[in-house]
Structure formats: structure tokens, C-alpha cells
């Protein structure tokens, strides 16, 4: 496990990457990307067992991660690149013609680190369950992780998957919910309330872990460690992680408006002024 200060530096750099990537092409999704930065930084730097130098689709003997809310591709790409899956320089190509860094992640262009296409919401939990079943069939005791937006939970397929995973004791699987309370059209509570999310997952038969401060690396790591402690105990695990959409850039926080909007030149400068360049920009 890298020390917290190092991870903090990485998080700050990833946030710089995110705002620079979406600014460069005037499109993309900075809000959720910034909110999930600490989670993905922690996951890929100490929590997950993975090999960024020898990526294989099958990932035998490795923990696997599936991003179900594919629109937060900027944070995913930045974390993968800064872990060594592909050159950091390639972040320049995000959303540009002929890039491997498509608007939403895909296996189509063979970008190391990606094992499924996502973007159309609600599909990643099913895929993660399938991968978890194969781990069991292969007697591979690695862990499957996935990340979902809270708005994404409005998709019916999520609940088909949730029912299946509990009924079939898929207990080598940790799903994390980015519980930021916001989606494109506004607050989740106003668009379509999720009600009592913890009670819903418990009623479906899941082990629920709550991470109260999803933008605090220590809290994120604690939440994931607690989640891992339930592996192999007969239930799928959900980590309901409270985050702030836009975390790290003051004017992107407290609103849903930066879900899918890119900053202009002036806004970029303001954002970068709040994010120290720690590891070098691409």
C-alpha cells in the first residue's frame, strides 16, 4: 500500500488530468470523474491485486474491476495510465478520432485495462457477476469489483443482477455505488428517488458497507477494507460510498451542472489553480 501522501498527490494529478482532458475536447463528464477519483486511485494502488504491465483479457489470478457508469471514463483512463496500463501521453487523444480512449470505455480498440464496453447504463453489475462466477469455476480466489452511479440504479437490470447475486451467493464480488445524489437532470431525489438504498440492498440479501467520506482517501480505503472482510461469507457486498460530484474543484461542487459539461479556458485555469501539479501533466 502506497502511503496516503503519495496517493493524495496522485489524486490531485488525476483531477488535473480529468479537467484538462474534457477541456481539450469541450466534452466529457468531469463531475462524476472528480467525485470518484479517490476511490479509483485507492482501488488501483493498494487495494486491488493487478498487473498493469501484462494486461490480459482473462486476468487469471488478478482482481478485476468493471466500470458500469462508463461516462466517467476520464478518471478511469487517467488512473489506468498513471498505473502504467498505457502511456500517460495517450490521455491527449481522449475523444479524438482514431483514439483508443473513446468517449465511453470499450474493448474494441484493445486499450489495456478495459475488459468490457460500458456507457449504456445498468449492464456492469451483470457482467461483474459473470466474471465472479468464472473466478469460482476456475478456483481463482481473486475479487471482482464494480462501480455504479447512483442514478444508474434506476435501470431495472441492476435489480435483476442484485437479486441473482444474492440468491446465488456471489460472495467474491464488491459493488461500489457512487452515492453523490446527482444525475444529469438534477438531484436523484427529484428525478427518481432511490428511497432507502441501504434497506433496498439489505432486502435483496446483500451485505451493505457504508463509506461516509468517499472523497477522503483514508475513509475510502477503510470502506474497501471492510468490504473485503466480508468476502467469502455467502453474500455479495455493496459499498455505498458518499461522494461529492465535482470534488476538488469548488465551482463544480454542490450542483449537477458539471455532470456532462466541460470547462472553458477561464474555468480550466480556475480549476487548475485549485489542483497542484504533483506528478507532471501529460
Amino acid at each position: 500500500m502506497a502511503d496516503i501522501q503519495q496517493l493524495q498527490k496522485l489524486s490531485t494529478q488525476v483531477r488535473r488530468d480529468i479537467v484538462r482532458m474534457v477541456h481539450a475536447v469541450s466534452s466529457g463528464h468531469p463531475g462524476g470523474s472528480l467525485g470518484c477519483t479517490d476511490f479509483l486511485v485507492a482501488l488501483y494502488n493498494g487495494v486491488m491485486k493487478h498487473d498493469s504491465n501484462n494486461f490480459t483479457m482473462d486476468g487469471k489470478g488478478e482482481d478485476l474491476f468493471f466500470l458500469s457508469n462508463g461516462h466517467i471514463s476520464p478518471v478511469y483512463y487517467s488512473v489506468l495510465a498513471r498505473c502504467g496500463y498505457f502511456p500517460v501521453e495517450e490521455l491527449k487523444t481522449f475523444r479524438r478520432l482514431n483514439t483508443r480512449l473513446q468517449g465511453h470505455p470499450t474493448t474494441h480498440d484493445h486499450l489495456p485495462g478495459i475488459r468490457i464496453a460500458s456507457g449504456s447504463l445498468g449492464q456492469g453489475m451483470s457482467v461483474a457477476i459473470g466474471a465472479a462466477l468464472t473466478k469460482k469455476l476456475n478456483h481463482d480466489n481473486s475479487i471482482i469489483y464494480s462501480l455504479h452511479g447512483d442514478g444508474e440504479l434506476q435501470e431495472g437490470q441492476i435489480w435483476e443482477a442484485a437479486m441473482y447475486a444474492a440468491a446465488n451467493k456471489v460472495d467474491n464480488y464488491i459493488a461500489t455505488i457512487d452515492y453523490n445524489g446527482r444525475q444529469i437532470d438534477g438531484d436523484v431525489d427529484n428525478v427518481l428517488s432511490l428511497g432507502n438504498l441501504k434497506a433496498k440492498f439489505e432486502a435483496f440479501g446483500w451485505q451493505v458497507v457504508e463509506t461516509e467520506r468517499g472523497n477522503d482517501l483514508v475513509s475510502v480505503i477503510e470502506g474497501l477494507s471492510k468490504s473485503k472482510s466480508y468476502i467469502g461469507k455467502g453474500k455479495p457486498i455493496v459499498n455505498i460510498m458518499k461522494t461529492e460530484m465535482g470534488a476538488g474543484v469548488d465551482f463544480m461542487m454542490g450542483t449537477h451542472k458539471w455532470h456532462g459539461s466541460a470547462p472553458n479556458d477561464e474555468q480550466l485555469a480556475k480549476a487548475l489553480g485549485q489542483l497542484e501539479e504533483t506528478l507532471g501533466d501529460y
Binding site: 483479457m57 482473462d58 486476468g59 478485476l64 468493471f66 475488459r115 468490457i116 445498468g122 449492464q123 456492469g124 453489475m125 451483470s126 457482467v127 461483474a128 457477476i129 459473470g130 466474471a131 465472479a132 462466477l133 468464472t134 431495472g156 437490470q157 435483476e160 443482477a161 441473482y164
Partner: peptide
Amino acid sequence: ANMIGIAAGLTI
């Protein structure tokens, strides 16, 4: 829908 997704995951 879940069946198709699980099938996709099983290939990995």
C-alpha cells in the same frame, strides 16, 4: 438482460 450480461462476464 441480466442473463446476457452474466454471459458476457463469464467469457472473461
